[in-house]
Design a protein around this nucleic acid. Structure first.
Length: 299
DNA sequence: AGACTAACCTGAAAGC
DNA sequence: TGCTTTCAGGTTAGTC
């Protein structure tokens, strides 16, 4: 059986940003703990410790799926959650909340007070105020941490396109008209629209009535405008419900983002389309599972 | 140079 | 029951 998973895309990163910002900025990072060098660390752990200890955050922004922590000396720290990354503060409520937003159920023994960093917790900030520590946990290590000195260029950020929430149909159309790829692949290209991942790409294409395999080059301006509008609508709605689940989160057992219930096609292959009752199909496109309604979405 | 593909990683679930 | 295989996905490096 095919099991759908939830992975941090733009809305999850934005909800995380909003959660972290008030609890992080202005606090002096006294000590940095890390795991051993790995794929996860673009900047070696030893360098991170040296550069970050004694600093404090003065700004936390988001571009696509990246979080950018601006430090008091002008340096920046890029954080990417990859597929299984979790950022949270030590203490039960934060952990439960954020894991719920991720849609990842934690084992009961890990939901207790005073979460102890485990082998998957690759980065920990301990603060001079002795308040809750910031933990970055990532089981599959697809997440990324990169330190940038004041004024340093970031190849990763520089190659991102316009943030999906700020994009216009005209911008998408300009990129689409010169690409010989499927529209779904276009949406996933971070150099075009930054922040769109597999789930919201499928959802937006369904809502816009566009077949995922339709050629990008054949998209008309009106198609692109509709598509961008649906990308933004579904993402804004997801941010909204992620926020509302904060107050809904009471029992660990029932915790999850309400997005699960609103999704129309993703992970619903062989189920009836909510619009026309045709069975939702699943195909593989660009090495990614792709879900669509063969009747509602035209090539 | 654009387009496509394998690799990175781990745990859950399916398969045997 | 338990060991083995498959699979998910964001990003990047490598190939054609």
């Amino acid at each position: 059986m095919y099991v759908a998973r939830r992975v941090p895309e733009l809305p999850e990163v934005e909800v995380t940003r909003r959660e972290l910002e008030p609890q992080l900025l202005g606090r002096v990072i006294e000590r940095v703990r890390t795991t051993a060098p790995s794929y996860f660390f673009i900047t070696p752990p030893a360098t991170l410790r040296k550069r970050l200890e004694g600093r404090s955050g003065v700004g936390l922004s988001r571009l696509g799926k990246y979080l950018v922590l601006e430090l008091d000396d002008g340096a920046r720290l890029l954080l990417h959650l990859g597929m299984t990354g979790q950022l949270f503060f030590s203490g039960a409520s934060s952990l439960g909340l954020l894991s719920a937003l991720r849609g990842m159920a934690l084992a009961p023994e890990k939901q207790t007070e005073g979460f102890t960093p485990d082998a998957h917790t690759h980065l920990v900030f301990e603060f001079g105020d002795r308040g809750p520590s910031l933990l970055f946990r990532d089981v599959r290590k697809f997440g990324k941490v990169e330190f940038l000195l004041h004024g340093a260029e970031s190849a990763r950020l520089d190659k991102l396109g316009v943030d999906a929430l700020r994009a216009t149909g005209a911008e998408l159309h300009a990129a689409a008209s010169v690409r010989k790829i499927a529209v779904k692949s276009l949406l996933l290209d971070q150099s075009v629209l930054a922040g769109v991942g597999n789930i919201y790409a499928d959802e937006a294409l369904f809502l816009a009535g566009i077949h995922p395999k339709r050629s990008a080059r054949r998209l008309k301006l009106a198609d692109c405008e509709r598509l961008v509008a649906e990308v933004q609508r579904v993402m804004l709605r997801s941010i909204e419900t992620g926020g509302s689940s904060i107050s809904d989160y009471v029992r660990p057992s029932g915790a999850r983002g309400s997005y699960q219930d609103e999704r129309r096609v993703y992970g619903r292959s062989e189920e009836a389309c909510s619009t026309c009752q045709t069975l939702i199909r699943r195909i593989v496109l660009g090495q990614r599972s792709t879900h669509f309604c063969p009747a509602c979405q035209r090539r």
